Simulated assay, not measured.
Amino acid sequence: MIRKATEKDIDRILTVTRACAQHMIGQGILQWNDSYPNKSAFLIDIQRGELYALEKNNNIVGCITISTLMDSEYVPIKWLTENKHNLYIHRLAIIPEFQGQGFAQRLMDFAEDFAIKNNYTSIRLDTFSQNKRNQKFYELRGYKKLGSVYFPNQSEHPFYCYELVL
């Protein structure tokens, strides 16, 4: 089941994202760290009504942020559509023991269905340049790689920006 997350879900969601960070670090993918993702980012997501939790057997196994807010780092990107009525995906995570079972696909299906039902023009996101698995995941879903942005608090390596026109 996918549902809007609440403040009482924060600790479990942080457990999920920390497990993902450790899993990626173990694979040499230094995408997430102790400072990101963090509690304050998730609290803002909840206040904005944009954080969703994926549950299996009443346990949170994943999350996704579906936002209408464009990060300032995205401004220089030459997007395929105008900067009007777009959705942005952030902090998609599936606890490692549940990865490879289609849960990330379910969260993205949910986000894309939400965007279509609400007449958004496109969905935009970024993924780490060193995370080839994520790049393939989004490209197979039809997302187009458009440019790079940097988040110095996360990595010296770029993040690739993608867009799916709906």
Rank of each mutant, 00 (worst) to 15 (best):
N86G: 06
I116H: 06
I60H: 00
D126G: 02
I94E: 01
W79D: 06
H85W: 14
R124Y: 05
I60T: 07
N57M: 07
S122W: 01
P96Q: 10
Q105D: 15
L69D: 13
A53S: 15
Y138R: 02
F110S: 05
K117L: 07
F110H: 12
L80D: 06
M108I: 15
N83Q: 10
I89L: 13
K132T: 14
Q99P: 03
M70T: 08
L69F: 11
N134L: 08
N134M: 15
W79K: 13
W79H: 13
E55P: 12
H90L: 03
S67V: 05
N58D: 13
P96N: 11
S129A: 15
D113R: 05
T65R: 12
Q130E: 12
N83Y: 01
A104C: 13
R106S: 15
A104I: 11
Y52A: 02
L69A: 08
H85G: 07
Y120P: 00
T81Q: 07
C63F: 10
I64P: 00
M108T: 13
I77D: 08
Q105F: 11
N131K: 06
A111I: 05
L125S: 05
T68I: 11
T81F: 06
Q101C: 11
E82V: 03
I95W: 04
I94A: 01
R106F: 08
N59F: 00
S122V: 06
H90Y: 09
R133N: 12
Q99C: 09
F114W: 14
S122C: 07
I60D: 01
I89W: 03
I89A: 01
K56N: 06
D109S: 14
L69Y: 11
K136Q: 15
N86E: 10
F114M: 09
K132W: 10
K132M: 14
R124Q: 11
T68E: 13
N86I: 09
G100H: 10
L54V: 02
D109T: 12
F110T: 14
M108H: 04
N119V: 08
